[in-house]
Amino acid sequence: MSEFDFSGLLTFWARRWDDILNLVLEHVTVVAVSLVIAMVIGVGVGMLVWNRPIPRSVVIASAGVALTIPSLAMLAVLIPPFGLGWTPTVIALVLYSLLPIVRNTVVGLREVPPAIMESAKGMGMSPTTVLFQIQLPMAWPIILTGVRVAAQLTIGIAAIAAYVAGPGLGQFIFQGLSSLGSKNALNYALTGTLGVVILALVIDAVFVSITRSTTSRGLRA
């Protein structure tokens, strides 16, 4: 049982401000890197399978299996082949991000009204041109929503990755656990946890503005 001491927490923050900023930066970096990789793979796979029923259900089912596996287990099986640190963390985060991104890509590409597809075809566009110039821009807001869900998910999972020497704010949470009983245990764990919550809320807000600014002008509400 440790006492909560608010001024102690403020001193803690003041003294370790550089460390905190560093961890926040690491956390954002690992999530961003994973999301970019997951987007390239997820949107690519989504574009390949969106109109093929069997590959589509196989891809979505396997991404669903990946998402069901508990994060500590996923990180654990990645350690023997990839060691500790950034590599297993990024791979795990990419695997968890795939389901929301692939699923939303498929849904977005399929939801383009048939009339629009017909008109594009009538204008002489090839299926590939229709996919890139018509469907992808129209599906973009839905794809980004998938990425946003993936971001929320991976920010939380990245906290656990600190256990396998991964980067980010999780290090403070585990530092709190390992200094259990000492004066700073609560400060460490609280700073790490609050940092992750604030980061998640800020990144969510960032996504709202990214979605607005990258949506094709004709589609903006």
Partner: peptide
């Protein structure tokens, strides 16, 4: 919604620190 943004590992470790393991 805020609860969903909270990392589970943080909740469980914080509770262990302020209460017991």
């Amino acid at each position: 919604n805020i609860g969903q943004a909270t990392p589970a590992v943080g909740v469980i470790i914080l509770l262990a620190i302020i209460w017991r393991t």
